[in-house]
Design a protein around this nucleic acid. Structure first.
Lengths: 194, 194
DNA sequence: CGCGACGTTGATTTGCCTCAACGATTGTGG
DNA sequence: CCACAATCGTTGAGGCAAATCAACGTCGCG
């Protein structure tokens, strides 16, 4: 048994499972340890897996034609992460996934997800809700990028990812906000003075 | 029969239906005509419906605390539109939907969607694919807003919505790109000179 | 210790915004 | 059908937020 009952109850909040279901889930989830700097997925790879973060921190990012990195999202404890755009359709990733703080994750393939959905239907609605939430987050982020200043976006970021500051470098946050490290530094200075 | 066979084949590309299925679908789709300026959905309304655009043009937008409008997306012929974030969960909309060019649409309730999914399962996967595509679009838009200049975003917009210029005002496009009408005007001038 | 990675600070530049004025286009009533 | 107003798009001048470029302080680590 690679997944403990307590882990499962965190992983699938509000769901309960029979012992058989639990065993089935455990058999499809692969535990992995990641070191800082490890690249879990490269842009242009075909995406077969999604990942659940037990602890540590990962991020998805892309590199533009000027060589600058842009962070699409972070994943900390209890977040799922993948390039869902590519995962859905088994096509090439447009983002990469990097471990930015030593992490323990579960890795699940698309194929195995489907087996699980088939055998344990409540998992399917669990994941659908996750996707809907993620969809909503993207929508809010677009509206935020249209309407908020860099400083407001930084505050919104801190609310969305509380306690993340110890896990990520400032230049990661800057690349998430769409600003330079220098600008973020000045924003932080300004906030600390008020 | 409120929906013709030819309309259905455009609406659900690559799907074919029996006569019974077709009748069922027709019974759940409500045809509506919209005049320019009509508001189909107000922010803070609970969202019960999604809409298919036969012709004309709609947009979703939100108004920020400064009173400025920000366009989240446009919908032209053969697009579906709603505040999906709110639609999924039957909660309050954060965007409004406005008709910006006289339109003919089909309106379908969440409830009726579920009846249809239940009776005609292939519809469910059809809509799941739509959602996945929409998810991917949002993801690309975020990365675009992080990495591209206003001019590049304008070009990307023209590629994404070709032939839309006759349907929408420039200030709508500006509010989609996150810039002012003046800036868009200058960008257009610059492009026309090259 | 010394080096590299990271964050901060200053000077300058730049892209886009704001404000204001003015054409162009569209719609409407006489 | 024209006259006029309202709406929309363009242009210019000036300002501001954030980028760029460059230098320097600090921290962690081999």
């Amino acid at each position: 048994m690679s997944i403990k009952k307590t882990t499962l109850s965190i992983l699938f909040k509000d769901l309960t499972f029979t012992d058989e279901e639990q065993d089935l889930i455990a058999s499809k989830f692969e535990l992995r340890k990641l070191k800082k700097g490890e690249i879990l997925l490269h842009a242009n790879d075909v995406v077969y897996h999604q990942y659940y973060v037990c602890n540590g921190c990962l991020r998805t990012y892309s590199v533009d034609k000027m060589g600058k990195e842009h962070t699409l999202q972070f994943a900390i404890k209890d977040w799922w992460i993948s390039d869902y755009t590519a995962f859905f359709t088994s096509t090439q990733a447009i983002v990469s996934i990097e471990c930015i703080q030593e992490a323990t994750i579960y890795k699940v393939s698309r194929e195995n997800m489907e087996v699980l959905f088939d055998k344990i239907p409540k998992l399917e609605s669990f994941f659908r809700r996750k996707m809907e939430k993620s969809f909503a987050n993207f929508q809010k982020r677009i509206l935020g990028s249209l309407s908020m200043s860099a400083q407001e976006r930084y505050n919104a970021f801190l609310n969305k990812y509380p306690d993340i500051e110890q896990s990520v470098k400032n230049y990661h946050i800057a690349s998430y906000l769409g600003i330079t490290t220098e600008s973020l530094s000045r924003i932080r200075k300004k906030i600390s003075k008020s």
